[in-house]
């Protein structure tokens, strides 16, 4: 017993150092894991509150571009609406009762109050949280394309795992085709992501549009991702295609969080099959 006390006395600094380092290391490991609940992140009320105050000031500098982006989106949505009217006019007299079809997705508006894009594992902070109905594994997009997936929530804030995160794997496809691949990021350039595992026979050309595939319960079908920048025609096993993002991930403002109402239903039926 005395020797133990002597030992602790002698190495107390080193033992204290080891204690702190093991705490830090376990925090690093839990932060890398998407499934585990996290302790150190920017969704707690102190850090989130400070970031909200900061973004109240800095938001003024982006108002002009923000307005232009919103106006462009409005114009695009108005065009879509006109197309819909046109399509229904030329159909025969079958009436589709919209009440019988349930809404599948809902969109919630939010604002990015903290943005990271220069690290290997990037996260963003949103000013909306559980109180606004935000939950884990919801999709985050803006008018230009995909941004990420909600990975942690607190009552007033939410953290988004950006597509610029080495852990992000998102289903994507070539527009208007059924050739699917997985979006991946190698950690180098914030303007590009990589599309892997896309079949070799897919008729890819430089400049083609890539959109989300709708094979997951998180992202709806057809959300824009980017255009093909470079096709690697080597002999490697993984067919790596470099995608230039539509979004400028270094300046993000208002975003939409997408909730999928059918998620529980899809998950339940998928689990039934396994049993």
């Amino acid at each position: 017993m005395q020797q133990l006390i002597f030992f602790i006395q002698r190495f107390k600094y080193f033992l204290f150092f080891l204690l702190l380092e093991s705490i830090a290391f376990s925090l690093i490991l839990t932060n890398l894991n998407f499934q585990k609940s996290k302790f150190v992140n920017s969704t707690n009320s102190i850090v989130g509150g400070i970031y909200t105050q900061k973004s109240k000031i800095t938001a003024y500098f982006n108002l002009k571009t923000e307005n232009e982006v919103l106006a462009a989106e409005n114009a695009r949505l108005r065009n879509e609406l006109q197309k819909k009217v046109f399509a229904t006019q030329f159909k025969d007299s079958t009436i589709v009762d919209t009440v019988r079809y349930f809404q599948k997705f809902s969109f919630t508006k939010g604002k990015i109050i903290n943005n990271n894009y220069n690290k290997e594992f990037n996260f963003l902070t949103l000013d909306i949280g559980k109180n606004q109905g935000i939950e884990k594994e919801m999709a985050v997009i803006n008018s230009l394309g995909i941004i990420g997936i909600i990975d942690n929530t607190s009552p007033k804030y939410a953290r988004v795992q950006s597509i610029l995160n080495k852990n992000s794997k998102i289903n994507a496809r070539l527009r208007n085709s059924n050739y699917f691949g997985t979006l991946d990021w190698n950690g180098d350039d914030y303007k590009t992501v990589q599309l892997i595992d896309i079949p070799r026979q897919a008729p890819l050309k430089i400049g083609d549009t890539i959109e989300t595939g709708g094979k997951s319960t998180i992202f709806p079908e057809g959300i824009l991702v980017g255009t093909v920048l470079k096709i690697n025609r080597g002999n490697s096993a993984e067919n790596r295609v470099i995608i230039k993002l539509f979004n400028d991930m270094s300046s993000l403002g208002t975003v939409y969080v997408i909730k999928n109402f059918d998620k529980l239903e899809i998950k339940t039926i998928e689990n039934l099959e396994n049993e």
Binding site: Y13, F16, F17, L20, E21, I23, A24, F25, S26, L27, I28, L29, T30, N31, L32, K38, V40, N41, S42, N44, I46, V47, I50, Y51, N114, N116, K119, F121, N122, F123, T125, R159
Partner: peptide, 26 residues
């Protein structure tokens, strides 16, 4: 050691890096 750890951890909270800053400054 304690204050450095705390400073690193606070920087981690703000930059969403888990405990990387805390580990290296300690």
């Amino acid at each position: 050691l304690f204050y450095s750890f705390l400073l690193g951890l606070s920087v981690d909270f703000f930059s969403d890096t888990g405990g990387i800053h805390a580990f290296s400054i300690t």
